[in-house]
Every structure is written in C-alpha cells, then in structure tokens.
Design a protein around this nucleic acid. Sequence first.
DNA 1: ATGAGCCATGGAAACGTTTTCAGAGCATCT
DNA 2: AGATGCTCTGAAAACGTTTCCATGGCTCAT
Lengths: 336, 336
Amino acid sequence: MAYTIKDVAKRAGVGIATVSRVLNESPNVLPETRARVLAVIDELGYRPNHAARQLVTAKTNAIAIILPFLTRPFFIEVLRGIESVVANSDYQLIIFNVDSPEQRTRYFNTLPFLGRTDGLLIVSLPLAPPEIKRLQAANLPAVMIDTQASNLPSVVVDNVGGAFKAVEHLISQGHQRIGFISGQLEPDLGFTVNRDRQRGYEAALTAHHLPVQAEYLRAGFDRRDWGHQAALELLDLAEPPSAIFAANDDLAFGVIDALRERGLKAGEDLAVVGYDDLEMAQLIGLTTIHQPMEQMGRKGAEVLLAALNEGTRRPTLHTLAVSLIERASSAKPSKA
Amino acid sequence: MAYTIKDVAKRAGVGIATVSRVLNESPNVLPETRARVLAVIDELGYRPNHAARQLVTAKTNAIAIILPFLTRPFFIEVLRGIESVVANSDYQLIIFNVDSPEQRTRYFNTLPFLGRTDGLLIVSLPLAPPEIKRLQAANLPAVMIDTQASNLPSVVVDNVGGAFKAVEHLISQGHQRIGFISGQLEPDLGFTVNRDRQRGYEAALTAHHLPVQAEYLRAGFDRRDWGHQAALELLDLAEPPSAIFAANDDLAFGVIDALRERGLKAGEDLAVVGYDDLEMAQLIGLTTIHQPMEQMGRKGAEVLLAALNEGTRRPTLHTLAVSLIERASSAKPSKA
DNA sequence: ATGAGCCATGGAAACGTTTTCAGAGCATCT
DNA sequence: AGATGCTCTGAAAACGTTTCCATGGCTCAT
C-alpha cells in the first residue's frame, strides 16, 4: 500500500495536521519543521490521496467537456483550445462525447459528471431550460461554447454575420444567382448553425435587392456526399446558380467533387464559398469564412476557470469575430 | 447540501448499511426493503458521493489517455476509437495532451494521474524502462497504443511492413527510382514511425534488387511544408525519382502541392504514395497505406478494460494489419 | 513579575461511503 | 425441545485527508 499522511507524520516526528499544513502551503509552520516534513515526503515518495482530499474539500479539480462528434475537425479545434488552457491550470479534463439524441438526454438526465467535476464546458449542444435549471440546482458552473443560454456564460461566433459576409462577397464578385447548401435545419441534437447561416444568406440577398429563390436552397445532411448531390441538383436546374455558398467546408468539398465530376472547375465555371476554414480548405484553395475555433475553446475554458477560481459567475456573452478568407474558388467569374 | 446516505437511511427507516447494499445491488436484501429504499432515493434525488466511495473502494472509475498532438488526425481517430469503447463502460476518460519533451518528462515524473485513474492508455509515446518501472510500482495498469513496451500490453501496426507494401506497389508499377520523404528519424518525443517506415522502404528496394540511394532519402519534419520542400529538392536532382513514397499523408499533400506548383500532376508525371489514409487522401486521390486508427484505439481500450475488470495482465502484443489503398496518384507512369 | 496575545503544534472531529461483524428472527433437522 | 443454519439487518470501524479547537511556549507591554 501507498504511504499515508500518518506515515509521514510519524517519520517526521510531527502531527498529521502539520504535514497537512506543509502540503497546503499554510503559513504558520516553522521553516525548520517544514523542511523536515518535506524531506520525509520526498524520501517516502508520499502522494496525498485524491479521494480523501476531495471528500473533505468537496473539490474535484476536474472539469468536464461535453461535445458531440468528437471526430469532426471543428470540435477537435475547440477541444484543442480548451486543452491548452486547462493544461496550464491544475484542473484535469474529462471528456464526454455525445453523438446521438439518446446519449444526450441520458447525459443530462443522469448528470454523470456530478460530483466528479467542478465545472462544465458544453460545446455546441443547446440546453433546454429544465436542463439548465438542473445544472444550477446542482450548483455546477457551466460555460456554453458555440451555443447560447441566456443565464449561462456563452462564447459564440456570429454565424448569421459570417454567412452574410460570405454571400456579400459573392455578390460583390458580380454573382446574382447564388445557391445555398446546408445540413439539416432542425437537426436531432438541436444545433442552430445551419439555420443561422441560412438567415445570413437570405439577409445578404435581401440587403442587395436580390430575390431568395426556394429552388436555390438545399438543406439536407451535414455530410460531404450531400454537398455533392445537392450541387448536382443545382447544376441541373434550368437556370443554374453561378455561385454556391455551402454552410460548411465539408459540404463545399462535396460541391467541388461534383464540379470535377462534370469537368467543371471551382472559381472558373462556378464560384464556391465554404464556412469553417478547415486546414483542407487552404490546400484546395477554397474561399471560406474563418472561424476562430481554437480561440473559442480557449475563451470558454478561461471563462470557466475564472468562474471557478474567482467565483465570477455572470452570464456574459462573448461573441468572437469571423473573417472572410479569399481563395481561388471564388475568383471573378468569366461570364457574369 | 446534497443528501447523504444517512438521510436516505433515516427516511426509509433502515440502516445505512442497507442503503449501501441496495446501491450496490447486493443480494440479501428483502425485495420489500429494497423497494422502500429505492423510493426514497428517487424521492430525494439522492446521488452517492464519488469521493467517499473512491476513498473506501480505492477505485476511481476513470482511465487516462496520454497522447501527443491532440490535433493531428491520427491521434483524433485513435481517440475516437478509445472513446467509443470507454463510453460503453462505466469508466470516464481523462485526457492528457503532451506536445513537448518537457511536458512529457513532467508528466512521467509527477504522474499526475496517479490516484485519479485506474488505468492508463499511452498513445505513440515510447516509455523508458525506469518510467515503466514507476508505473508498475504504482500498480497502475497501462496499455501502449502505437508504441511497444516489452512488459506492457501493446497495440501496434506493422509500420515496416506497411512501408514495404507501399514501395513494392510502386516497384510493381515499373518504378525504379523511388524517393522517400519523412519526418525526423529521431524526434524529440521518441516516435519511431519514420525510422520504421524508412526500414520498410529500404527492405522493399533491397528485396527487389534496387539500390538504396542516399540522395533519394529526405528526412526532415513532420509538416506539410517539408513535404513540399523535399519534393522540390528531389525534382531538381540530375536524375529525379519517378515516384515518391511519403512517410505520411500530410507529407504527401506537400509533395502534391509542389508538383502542382511545377505544373506537374501526381499519377501522371510522378507517382506519389502516402501513409495513413486520412480522410483527405480520398478526396485528393492519394494512393496510401490505410492504418486502422480507430481500431487501434478500440483495441487498446478493450485490452485495458479487460485488464481492469478481469485482472488479465499479460503483456500481449496485438499487431493490426495495414492495407494498400490504390488511387489515382500512383497510376501507371507514362514513361517507365 | 505578570497577564495578554501570538505562533507553532497536535489531537480529534468530520467528510460519506463500504464492509465487517454480530445478532435477531425463523425454519429445519435430530 | 433444542441445536443448527440461513437470511436479513444495523452498529461501528475504516478509508486518508482537512480543519477546528485547545494547549504550551514565547514575546512584549505593563
């Protein structure tokens, strides 16, 4: 068995309370005593038992992050941002991946993190009011990233504004017929990205006195093959669009795939703009909206740590800016 | 404050031991008693305190995963595999990201997971014998993924064999002059992938009676821009190779980039083969070696869980197979 | 010289569980 | 009828900390 505080105390010839004081850097310990205790700790390789400490302090020194689709680049980047901040604190990071609505409700019903974590980072998953209530009842500080809850601190990006920028860019290039391809507008897990970006798309058209045409709107799935299929559908219209705005880069890749299949080229025969600015976008030369994904993670983690350490707990809303990255896929069209 | 087991006991008119028995599904409890206790638990919304439970059982119900470069696709896929297995157990997953040698040594010296986790999954990071000793001294079951330690269970892929396959494929396409681009052969964190794949490259050449030419070997960094630069260097040789094997897909993307810059096309002017089979590889049409990344994670997690639940602790070695995925980038060359 | 106040220290309670142990009740066997 | 054994139960010990409280020694002002 591992050594306990008693072993240290005995060996150092002091009481366990003194050892505890040394451990917790309490002042009132004679330097000489402290040195002796530290020497023994070092000699025995003693390490305080976490569980015992947790039991009495009621602190876990861990925070949980709940995110969907661990595998998608967006979430990875966010995770990376979070990790970079948390690694420099003395908190540990527990991961919960949620891929299905069932898992989601299971998590928020059983709250398996309760008592195992001091705080929560919730990425992209919108919470229902009763769920928020339950968190607050449990006195568990939470920060939302990429979703918003009115009574919780939230870190978001302006999806409507970003989409607006994307479409406005296309319009400024002379495009009048602009298609929009997105994933589900009302997905199982309640994401609002697609809806928000569609709103931005429509707002930009309207602001420039262009009509919003139903046949140019293609909401399907958040998968590349849907981007592919939807692009083909748009190309086959009697009057096909001269530009396509895809609600995320992955869909845009599908679009580019479809173009290639038809012997067409993005940026020459049809302008394409994506959203996310994944690493791949640069390689492919895709014009897109850059989201500060890692920064979102960092900011969220910082807000949570501040709440934990200083007790700051105001539900502030942090909105991060997005920017347009111009690349070859939206060069000026040959035929306006 | 939250309710404790005492509150439940009092309210149900039983002793705390009985509540504990109900909680732990011990047999010897009268069905009627059990029902009464469960009713009270439900009524109060009682949840057992983790720390207290841990303290007495000396079990944390958490496992830690230690991996480098959380951001690279390879590790993400492995992580996803791990997560998918762990999510179905009642363990939780704590993440430690290690990006620098300093962090690495810090982690393995302080062992911050000690007492917070029941087991360890170590991805790609080779351990020095004293480090392994320390883990075993702490009685902490560990499984290595994508590295190997003689006295710990390990899940690996055959990097030498995979590289062999890749190069043999190029040779079978008629190539005689084959370049090899890789990251550092002796990187800071001690990965051996690059070295292993180089060995496979050399073995394949030798097996087919082709010379290993030093000027065709380019070891640099695990970054796309190195692939780019090294490819240019190879192209500028007096007698440039007709094919390039890149030690990972990312490097291969850099190669393709360089070709494009010179107005050349992979698969037509020069054959390119990568390694990893990232999602992007498919999009780009890169011939590559498919690694079962997610499966590695799953397997590793399964082995660890088995060790935890059943006490199986033999240091078995699990070698997973890799396969060649032929795509356009290694079509038959026009001029052999 | 004496009391007030401070500092360093140790003993013991408390945290909320699990688990050991002993006992009560009851049926079964001799 | 008494011994035996089984099932269910509760009291109490144990886990390893932190923290409260008491105490003894010391300094310093009176």
